[in-house]
Design a protein around this nucleic acid. Structure first.
Length: 497
RNA sequence: GGUCCUGUGGCCGAGUGGCUAGGCAGUGCUCUGCAAAAGCAUCCACAGCGGUUCGAAUCCGCUCGGGACCUCCA
């Protein structure tokens, strides 16, 4: 019963029972970042959301293959034929190689994900590593009459696809609206219809550095192609979960879907998941709106909208307090509240470590008390099983924490709830906080500051010739791997060598 | 303009036909040398107007407000 996971499938718009295609294996593909600049907090929210989903699936015992790509080519600045590749543009701007751009921001992305305690994916493929596969897919699509070549570029023929399939079924769009809703963009002459999208872009006659040989021209692949190709390569022609931010639903995921269906004749994905946006004053956080926060700005507090710094785990907790499919509004007050809540939860772990059965406590467990504990533990699973509702899960964990604190203050005793329920409570709390929600204890202790206090005590004891105390301090510190050094210039400390 | 989402207490945010969400803040009390932490109690709510129902924050309609996508975005 506790394993009845239900997830909201964007394709059907309904909450569906999660049944993997080949249990216990689960294939999950998440659209990763385009590495042309720093990831901002909104980007982070999506990856943290999928980190929770990944962690929970693992916790349920599934063998998950989590693929998250790195987009390092093909993502155009806009949809026009003359649209520049984002990576190439940045490289030109900074006068470095495109691959230097890619390397720099990929490394930065990994560092940030690590700071937020997100588990690395099982496979992290890059678009440039799969040019051959992308060319093969384009050839297949041309063969099937779903793509056409113009001047060395190849476009997906949405109208031709529409004859047998339904373009727009994921994003809820009608093809007629898309066809009539044409926007005048420069240099779209090559495409037969504005809804058609690039599979291959010719770089002939341009100074594009990122180019590969193909049957059509020296050029580079279109953005939507990489996900189709890499998803298929590592997870198969049908896999369980495909996720990404809400803003990728159209056109990116719609195009991906069309490419897969066009090439293989059937849907590639059983459950589509979309995470919602992080907002600032009610508006979507995005690079183009200039309202985004970079992780390091948050950690340092160095941003005009920030009153003070916030730690990675505070921010993670803040994100967990909302559901992944809801927008989440960023504010100082909310972050401050999150910091306190987060620390309270962490203090619970500490309290829990020190809870033990008292000697001579052997009263019979109170049925009601035991049932309450079990109820709360069940609730944690129930909440996560309901489309990964982390906000509700946190609520239940705080209820559990209240019980833990009651034990701590002896308003409640372990014997009253019974050893079994106590063990379950302990295990549930730790597992949910650390493993499933992926929170960790952050030590912001300043060891130099602490040692100053100790050294003052030490100096005072020496002054008073209280050598017993001096010896105790020395040996206690030594057991922590720290040695004190009495020098003419004063007392110093060092790690034991 | 089209499509869709959304409006919950001082703040943030779950819930979704009947049962205390939770966190932060506030108030009172217990504990305490003073604090802090913790506990106990308490205050503050479902945008507005209609409708369905024994019962609606939850379903339906309208009005008003906010947002997303339709162009690059997680």
């Amino acid at each position: 019963m506790l394993k009845d996971l239900r997830i909201n499938n964007s394709l059907s718009g309904k909450k569906e029972l999660f049944e993997p295609i080949h249990a216990p294996f689960v294939g999950m593909y998440v659209c990763g970042p385009t590495v042309y600049s720093d990831v901002h907090l909104g980007n982070v929210r999506t990856f943290v959301s999928f980190d929770i989903i990944y962690r929970y699936l693992l916790h349920l015992g599934y063998k998950v293959r989590y693929v998250r790509n790195i987009t390092d080519v093909g993502h155009l600045v806009n949809d026009a034929d003359a649209g520049e590749d984002k990576i190439a543009k940045k490289a030109k701007l900074e006068n470095i190689e495109p691959m230097e751009v890619v390397q720099r921001y990929t490394q930065d992305f990994h560092r940030v994900m690590d700071q937020f305690n997100a588990l690395p994916p099982s496979i992290e493929p890059s678009a440039t590593g799969h040019i051959l596969e992308q060319i093969e897919l384009i050839e297949l699509l041309i063969e099937k009459g779903l793509a056409y070549e113009v001047n060395g570029s190849v476009y997906f023929d949405v109208k031709a696809y529409q004859k047998d399939h339904n373009y727009g079924k994921l994003s809820g769009r009608k093809i007629e609206d898309l066809l009539s809703n044409t926007r005048a963009l420069d240099g779209q002459d090559e495409k037969r219809e504005s809804v058609d999208f690039a599979l291959w872009k010719s770089a002939v006659g341009t100074d594009h550095i990122m180019r590969w040989k193909s049957p059509w021209s020296d050029g580079f692949p279109g953005w939507h192609l990489e996900c189709t190709v890499m998803g298929t390569k590592y997870l198969g022609k049908t896999f369980d979960i495909h996720g990404g931010g809400m803003d990728l639903k159209f056109p990116h995921h719609e195009c991906e879907l069309a490419q897969s269906v066009g090439a293989h004749g059937h849907d590639p994905v059983k459950y589509w998941l979309h995470t919602n946006m992080l907002t600032v004053n009610g508006q979507k956080m995005s690079k183009s709106l200039n309202n985004s926060f970079l992780p390091h700005e948050l950690f340092s507090g160095d941003h005009e909208l920030l009153e003070r710094p916030y730690s990675p785990m505070t921010v993670r907790f803040f994100m967990l307090q909302s559901h992944y499919a809801s927008t989440l509004d960023f504010s100082n007050d909310a972050l401050l509240a999150a910091q306190k809540g987060y620390r309270k939860l962490m203090n619970g772990l500490k309290t829990l470590r020190n809870l033990h059965v008292n000697e001579g406590e052997d009263a019979t467990p109170n049925e009601k008390a035991t049932a309450q504990i079990n109820q709360i533990c069940d609730n944690c699973y129930r909440a996560m099983n309901d489309d990964f509702n982390t906000a509700l899960t946190l609520g239940h964990l705080f209820n559990l924490l209240k019980k833990i604190n009651n034990l701590h203050t002896q308003n409640l005793t372990i014997s009253q709830i019974g050893q079994e329920a106590f063990d379950r409570m302990k295990h549930t709390y730790k597992t949910f906080v650390l493993e499933i929600l992926g929170l960790k204890e952050e030590s912001n202790l300043d060891i130099d500051g602490l040692m100053d206090i100790v050294i003052k005590e030490y100096a005072a004891a020496k002054e008073a010739k209280n050598y017993d105390k001096v010896d105790v301090l020395r040996s206690s510190l030594k057991s922590q791997g720290i040695v004190l050094k009495d020098m003419k210039s004063g007392i110093d400390w060092a790690y034991e060598e």
